[in-house]
Design a protein around this nucleic acid. Sequence first.
DNA 1: TTACAAAGCTACGTCCGCGTAGCATATTGC
DNA 2: GCAATATGCTACGCGGACGTAGCTTTGTAA
Lengths: 212, 212
Amino acid sequence: MVTKNGRRRREYAPRVPIEQRRRELLDAALRIVVRDGHGAVTMEAVAAATGVTKPVVYGVFPNRETLLGELLRREQAAALEQLVELLPALRKGLAAGAHPADVLAEALDGFLAAVRAAPERWSCVVSPMADMPAQFNAAREETRGLVLASAEELGRWITRTFDASTDLDPELIAHTVVTLAEMAARLVLTDPERYEPARFVKGLRAAVGLVR
Amino acid sequence: MVTKNGRRRREYAPRVPIEQRRRELLDAALRIVVRDGHGAVTMEAVAAATGVTKPVVYGVFPNRETLLGELLRREQAAALEQLVELLPALRKGLAAGAHPADVLAEALDGFLAAVRAAPERWSCVVSPMADMPAQFNAAREETRGLVLASAEELGRWITRTFDASTDLDPELIAHTVVTLAEMAARLVLTDPERYEPARFVKGLRAAVGLVR
DNA sequence: TTACAAAGCTACGTCCGCGTAGCATATTGC
DNA sequence: GCAATATGCTACGCGGACGTAGCTTTGTAA
């Protein structure tokens, strides 16, 4: 009822099974990362944003590192999942010999829609988060590596389709494609008024149209 | 000679005028930022890396924020200076109606040479440094804004030269060019064996060669 | 050679975030 | 209605980084 020092005891937060708490806490942590950077993700802040106290957080995650690790893994995985869902349509386009500009524009459009569907997730996936503990950047690079490998497939298709010189190697194309996709995502997320997805899609169409 | 607790007194570092110290300290801070992230730039760490003690650092910078601020300003300014030196050659190319592939390849080559000439500087200029105090990102964005504006000039030249549709607007081109330059720089800096500047230059040539 | 100013150094006080110990209460099964 | 247990809360110890007070040494100029 009342504490040692005579202060009124805080009202109890509703009790919640641990797996649900885990999700709530990670959601709160994500919001904080996005809004204030990962340095602001203190155990206290996560607790407060979830409406509980610090030891509750420690009841779910043994330490801050684990919390951040699980958060990043969860978001990376979910983002990757969204990308995988775009693959069938893309592959069909590549195989069917559709017009390159259409194939690429469709893919970009789908991607930016995915980004807008989960803005917080993507804003932490799509920008480097400098000076995180090494293991996190490693995790990020791992996922990004998968995407790059997949983009190389696209790179090979591009060199074939446009009959490019071998100087334009698929790995370079992959880096370019992924980097530009990330750029578009960042702009769409940080300044949605000025940078609508359609703008990038149209721009891409026009650029591809210049070839040949 | 000897301290209160009977410990031997530390040997005095050579005395150095303040402006030189300032440079030394900023140099040390830069090395630390690049190697271990900005979180590792504690006043203590900077002092140690310079071979002095903490109060010496406070003798030059009133607080950590100022130190980091001055560091970033210095590096941004120096980087910008390197870019400005590349401008005359580029402008000449644009005006002289040289072959676009040559103009662009030359520019990229010059840029990557500049990056390799000052790798630490560029590795902190070229990657976002998430979760720095807001003012620093603001400073970075300011400089980057100048570069973007300049790149827009290039964008207009490109649309003119290739007679592109208005969907490919100069602002988009500017973002693309700057982002890809940053990407190349990052790759060259983090994995110089695998990504030599020439690789990007040849790739760019090949890509531009596809047009028309 | 000596005094004094400039530059360094030691030693703290403070704050903040991590992580823990142990008490309080809500909920569930009987 | 009541015990048992899971969930939450208060309170604290610890360490690391910031920033400061005040003493010590070095170099220089009279």
